[in-house]
Write a protein that binds this DNA or RNA. Structure first.
Lengths: 133, 133
DNA sequence: GTCGTTGCAAAGCGTTTGCAGCCTA
DNA sequence: TAGGCTGCAAACGCTTTGCAACGAC
């Protein structure tokens, strides 16, 4: 039996969350989304961020960026193939262009997807460190 | 002032955990380590596995394998450079050979390390699926 | 006997869920 | 007004920590 389309309501909280992600220049963690969205929607709660983000991923408006050792980050879906850089110092995650992975696999293994994560120090942090000396 | 070397005791639990990891052919999760080590050390607790694994990582006997969306796995340290394959069906993690990543980064970013994770179906699972039809 | 180690249970931490009240359509 | 949405707090799953008993040396 086909599930009927259910009306999705347009609320202040959802608008705030979408706006934050729309403007983001890098993938954001739920905590970053919450902090940014609270500026335009005071009182916004954690649960709402998680619930909204989850539904945005389901409708393919957002893409989940899972990073080893860090909470899942989120970025706008539909970008061209790319990978990520996670800064050891500030924990921010950046998008990086280009993908040159061509792994050879044992027989019988079938690849569905791949993730490449680079770790290091981002530009902002390496500049800050230099300046503080 | 140099910290004096503290005697590390050789216990049944630690021996069991090390033995499991020594014999493992792929990175194991804490849960897998616990289950396997309990066979030779009944009553072994979770906390002991985490504590032991942590100290083995500190002394570079073990390497942590962090995987997006899964608990950290552990493998013997000192292996040659390689990456990992995570099976969507059985959640097991495998080691894969060869690394062909040569990312180009924006100016000012410095890379310390990188991780490549492939997702898909492992050989055992694709064989099992075929057999069950 | 000393003191590092262990198991248990409680605490953490990020994420999810139950629920009563709220607010969009 | 209906019922999807929200904030709060409790519940989760995995990992860490506090603590008294244990056992290696």
């Amino acid at each position: 039996m086909p599930r009927l389309e259910v009306a999705a309501r347009d609320t202040r909280q959802k608008r705030a969350i979408r706006a934050v992600l729309e403007r983001a220049e890098r993938p954001l963690s739920p905590e970053e989304i919450l902090a940014a969205a609270q500026r335009s929607s005071a009182g916004l709660g954690t649960a709402t961020v998680y619930r909204t983000v989850k539904s945005l991923v389901e409708e393919s408006w957002l893409a989940a960026v899972e990073l080893p050792g860090r909470p899942t980050h989120y970025e706008r879906a539909g970008k061209s193939h790319h990978h990520h850089f996670a800064c050891d110092a500030c924990a921010r995650v950046y998008e990086i262009e280009g993908c040159t992975v061509t792994p050879s696999l044992p027989r019988g293994f079938r690849v569905r997807d791949h993730e490449v994560t680079l770790y290091g120090i981002c530009r902002a942090c390496s500049t800050a460190k230099r300046a503080s000396r």
